[in-house]
Design a protein around this nucleic acid. Structure first.
Lengths: 114, 114
DNA sequence: TGCAATACATCACATCGCAATGTATAAAGG
DNA sequence: CCTTTATACATTGCGATGTGATGTATTGCA
C-alpha cells in the first residue's frame, strides 16, 4: 500500500479531475471518494490538495461551479466541465500516453488485460 | 509536439532515470539523449532539470557515481544503480501502474500497439 | 450530549522543474 | 588558425504545487 509520490499525485490530479467531470458534474468531497473507489483504494487524496486544484481549474476557465443544496440539506459546490476543459483533457491524455509509452519501453508492454 | 507538462516531467524523471541506469551505467548528457530517442522526440529534458535529479538520487543512496575519462578524452561522471535503487525502481513502477490503470479506466484500455 | 462523517476553505513549508548563467574541452568546418 | 557547434558538468532565483495543520459548519447516529 505504498502511497503514491507527491509528484505522481501532481501529474495525475488534473487529468483525473477532468476525467471525472467529463462523466458529469460533481463536487469536491465526492471526487475524493470516487478517486479512492476507481483506484481500488490505491489513491487517497486529501481535501487540502483537491480544493486548490478545483479552484485553479476554474480560474483557468476549464470548469464552472454552482452551489446547490442536496436532498440531505447540505450545500455542495458542483463543478462542470466546459468546452475548454474538454480540449484540455484531450491534451492531458495525449501527454500522459506519450510518457507512459516511453516508460513502457523499459518496463515491457502493458499487461493489456482488459 | 505539445511539450510535456512540468508535473508530468517531475513524475516521470525519477523512474525514467532509474530505468535507464538499470540497463547499465551512464552519464548525464547521454541520459538526456537517450530519453529523447526512446520517446521518439516527445520528451526533451534540460540539463538544469536532470543534474539535480541525479544529485538527489545519489544523496538518497539509490545510485553511485564515478568519474571516468572516455576514449575521446572527455571526463564524464558515470552513474550506476545499486541495490537500493533497484528496489526504488520497482516501487516507482508499481506506483506508476497504479495511477495509469486508474486513468485507463476513464480513457479506455491502452492502444496496446507496439 | 458527543463523536464521526460530510463539505467547504486557507496557509506555512518543502520540493522540484524551468530558464538563465557559468565553466571547460573536443570536434568540425572554413 | 579560428570560429562554431556539440559535449559535459554545475548552480540559482522563480513559480507552481502537494502536505499537513487548522478553521468553520452541518448532518446523523448512538
Amino acid at each position: 500500500m505504498s502511497d503514491i509520490s507527491k509528484d505522481l499525485i501532481a501529474a495525475s490530479s488534473r487529468p483525473l479531475v477532468l476525467s471525472i467531470l467529463a462523466e458529469g458534474e460533481s463536487y469536491g468531497y465526492a471526487i475524493i471518494q470516487e478517486v479512492r473507489e476507481r483506484s481500488g483504494g490505491q489513491l487517497e487524496w486529501t481535501d487540502g490538495m483537491l480544493y486548490p486544484v478545483l479552484h485553479r481549474l476554474q480560474r483557468n476557465g476549464l470548469i464552472t461551479s454552482k452551489w446547490k443544496t442536496a436532498d440531505t440539506g447540505r450545500k455542495r459546490k458542483y463543478y462542470r466541465l466546459n468546452t475548454k476543459g474538454k480540449k484540455a483533457l484531450a491534451t492531458e491524455r495525449q501527454q500522459w500516453f506519450a510518457v507512459h509509452e516511453t516508460l513502457a519501453q523499459f518496463w515491457g508492454p502493458d499487461p493489456c488485460l482488459t
